[in-house]
Computed example of a mutant assay.
Amino acid sequence: MKTRWTRIDEVRTGSVNSEDIFDPYSFVLLVGKGTVIDSKTLQFLKKRNVTWVPVEEESDEIEKDLTLEAESAIAQSSQQMLVPDLPLILSDEKYHLSMDRFHDFASVILETGVANLTDIEDLSNDIVAEVIKTEHSILNFMTDIAPGFVVKHGINCAILAAAIGQRIKQPWHYLVQIVKVALLHDIGLIHATKEKSLFYVENVLKQFAVTPIDRVRAHPFLAVKLIERMNPTFLEPDVSRGIVHHHERFDGFGFPLGIQGKNINFFSRVLAVVDAYDTLITKVDGKSILDPYHALKWIIHNVKGIFDPDIVRAFIDISGLYPTGTIVRLNDGRIGSVISRGDRTIARPILSIEGKEVETENESGSYIVEVMGIDKMEKSRRVE
């Protein structure tokens, strides 16, 4: 089966919905994948201002060729950067320098438990300065974990968090604080995941951890304790709470305290979104859990459950509905990689097709009919 996006007035009753359909304004799930569409469903979708519906269509011989073409496009993108031929969200030099600086900081923390916090202060300000200068819709960054997950993840989350903060018009001081939270939120993992760590660290973990799982779940507390031991006044109260509560959920079912909704620290709510996105697209053994489109789709699906809708909306304003690196097929059969969201709408991205930049906003007859995701590629391999 393949997906054909069809105008809602042209959808026949009895068609099968091939993708989850979300409310275009609130991101609430309206109709689940695999639903047989009847007249009531169509009427309901029209009332919710849904104009296009993904329906299943029988595959043909062309489908196999298109799948192979898309697989080739994905293979070319499966390098260290999300899209190898695209500039990074920060300049290449600044990005790698930031990675090196944070790697040095984390290495010292691992070895001694004590590092120079001025390095984090300076790095946070430098990242904010760079993000403000960039085109935020081009979310191209590292997905491999070569320098270590905590390092790569910290830098990527810091960049994305700063971009969201700027999108919702936070002042410079707040942007720097958001970046600090993003950089340091998982710093406790470098000790918590070890069977035995430094004496001081073990004493901290004993307060929270009984089992190996408890040790990992205690990493937000450990991060704050490590920083406070170096300098008790370095973290402002909001930053400390941002780190400690970054695993809280919007519905109140997170940890450690089960805080709900807007009562969760603002920095934590921002971090929850960028933490999930970067983790989902991170390559482990050369493969990501999800491609960018399906990672964003998963986040949208969990709005009001895990994530703050306002933060997700700000992230979508930056990324578009088809984030950088998404492989898509147009209605005319062309396959390309998304390199940026469009200037006027989140649903019509800028693509790279055979080395040429294509603005789908300016091609009135062209539109996306399918996302050629990692899961689809894996399924096609198993079938063959």
Rank of each mutant, 00 (worst) to 15 (best):
I74S: 05
A209M: 15
F208L: 08
A182C: 15
E354Y: 03
T279A: 13
K47Y: 07
K196H: 04
D317A: 01
S91R: 06
S268M: 08
I299K: 00
S77N: 07
A223G: 10
K169Y: 10
V50I: 03
K225F: 10
N116I: 03
P323G: 08
L82W: 01
I353K: 05
I190Y: 04
K2Q: 12
G165Y: 00
A115P: 04
N125K: 10
L68H: 15
I316V: 13
A218H: 12
E202S: 12
I132R: 05
E378R: 15
S77D: 10
K376A: 13
H153S: 13
L29M: 07
E384S: 08
I289K: 15
K47T: 08
P147F: 04
K376C: 05
V371R: 14
D119T: 13
Q166F: 13
D23H: 13
V274H: 06
V224Y: 09
D310N: 15
D343N: 05
G165K: 00
L175M: 10
L183E: 12
K180Q: 11
G305S: 06
F250G: 00
Y25T: 13
T326C: 08
G165R: 00
V181K: 11
R269I: 07
I368E: 09
G242D: 03
G320M: 09
M142A: 09
L117Q: 07
H103P: 01
K40E: 11
E135C: 07
I368W: 06
E359C: 01
S340L: 04
T118S: 14
L205Q: 08
W52M: 13
G148T: 06
I132E: 04
I213W: 02
V244P: 00
I227S: 12
F253W: 00
R269P: 04
I350M: 01
G373R: 15
V131T: 02
C157W: 14
L205I: 05
A209D: 10
H245M: 12
T35Y: 04
L86N: 00
I264E: 04
D310I: 10
I164V: 02
K262D: 14
T41S: 03
F266T: 10
F199Q: 14
I138A: 03
L123D: 10
D343I: 02
E135H: 10
N125P: 11
W52T: 09
S240F: 03
G261T: 07
R4V: 11
Q43R: 10
Y174E: 13
P309N: 09
M372Y: 13
L88Y: 02
L175P: 06
H153G: 14
F234H: 10
F221R: 08
I138T: 03
L271E: 15
T13M: 09
H96A: 01
L117C: 12
R217D: 12
L68F: 15
E63V: 09
S91Q: 05
S77I: 01
D375C: 14
S380N: 11
F44D: 05
A314K: 00
